[in-house]
Amino acid sequence: MLLLRGINVGGHGKLPMAELRALLEGLGATGVQSYIQSGNVVLSDAPAVEQIEAAIEAGFGFRPACLLIGADDWRAAMEADPFKEARETPKLLHCFFCARQPAADILAVEKALENGERAELLGRVLYFHAPNGMGKSKFPAKVERLLGTPATARNFATVAKLAEMLDTP
């Protein structure tokens, strides 16, 4: 699984998915499938993150942060979700996938939560339930600072769809 951070958002970091798929195939990736326009790619034989970032920069003029997550790790992250009851509204439940193991002060994370929000850090995934919606929360803007590592979030509907894509070549 390849996640790109900050592409096709508000007119910045424009990267058409067809061109991204072609770029990845040109780098040797196989079974390349994208989901929606926000940089979600299921693939096999993935090149190194640095190689992907450099190729995007050379071809599109910007360098998005990329995160590779193995299929087993993706499924494990989905299963480890501590807020399973929140899956009834999957767009309010998010997974922040971290580039490195966070060096988080969990008390600082908890202090940053508001209005019934919940967060739990398990390994390299921060699970975040925002009952009033991600757009109304101040927490996402603080996540990387609190965790001490780059991170990219996906709502649980996207996490589940990508898991489904892993199982359907």
Rank of each mutant, 00 (worst) to 15 (best):
A103W: 01
A103L: 09
A99W: 07
R124Y: 04
A160S: 13
R118P: 01
N115Q: 12
L122K: 15
P140H: 06
E114I: 01
A153E: 13
A157T: 03
K136L: 14
A99I: 05
F96L: 11
P90E: 14
A157W: 02
R100H: 15
F96D: 04
F83P: 00
A108T: 04
L126Q: 07
L93W: 11
E120H: 02
R118H: 10
H94M: 09
D81F: 03
R87P: 04
A153W: 11
T152L: 08
G116H: 07
R145W: 13
G133V: 00
A157Q: 09
A119E: 10
H94V: 01
K136T: 05
A99S: 06
A80I: 08
F97Y: 15
R145V: 10
G133C: 08
F128Q: 01
L93N: 11
A157V: 02
L121Q: 07
D105R: 03
G123L: 12
C98P: 11
T158C: 07
E85G: 09
V159R: 06
N155P: 02
H94E: 06
P140E: 12
Y127F: 11
V109N: 09
P140G: 04
K161A: 07
A160K: 10
K91I: 12
N155H: 08
V109Y: 11
C95Y: 14
F156E: 09
L92D: 10
E85T: 07
E144M: 09
H129T: 02
G123Y: 14
A80R: 11
L162G: 02
E110H: 11
H129R: 03
L93T: 00
F156T: 00
L121S: 01
Q101M: 14
A153V: 02
F83D: 12
F83I: 10
N115S: 10
A112V: 00
V143D: 09
T89I: 11
T89A: 14
C98H: 05
V125G: 04
L107M: 06
A108I: 12
A112Y: 08
V159Q: 01
L121H: 01
N115T: 01
A103C: 10
A153P: 00
I106E: 12
A99T: 05
T158S: 13
R118W: 01
R100L: 09
I106W: 06
K91Y: 12
R124A: 15
E144A: 01
Y127Q: 06
F128E: 02
H129Y: 15
L92N: 14
G116N: 05
G123V: 08
E117G: 00
F128D: 05
F83R: 04
F96A: 15
L92Q: 14
M134V: 13
E88L: 11
T158A: 14
A157D: 08
A119R: 03
K138P: 02
T158G: 10
L147V: 03
A160M: 09
E79N: 06
P140W: 11
F97H: 02
P90R: 15
H129W: 15
E117S: 01
E114P: 05
G133Q: 10
A160T: 08
A130I: 00
R154A: 05
N155W: 08
M134N: 09
S137F: 00
L92T: 03
K91T: 15
L93D: 13
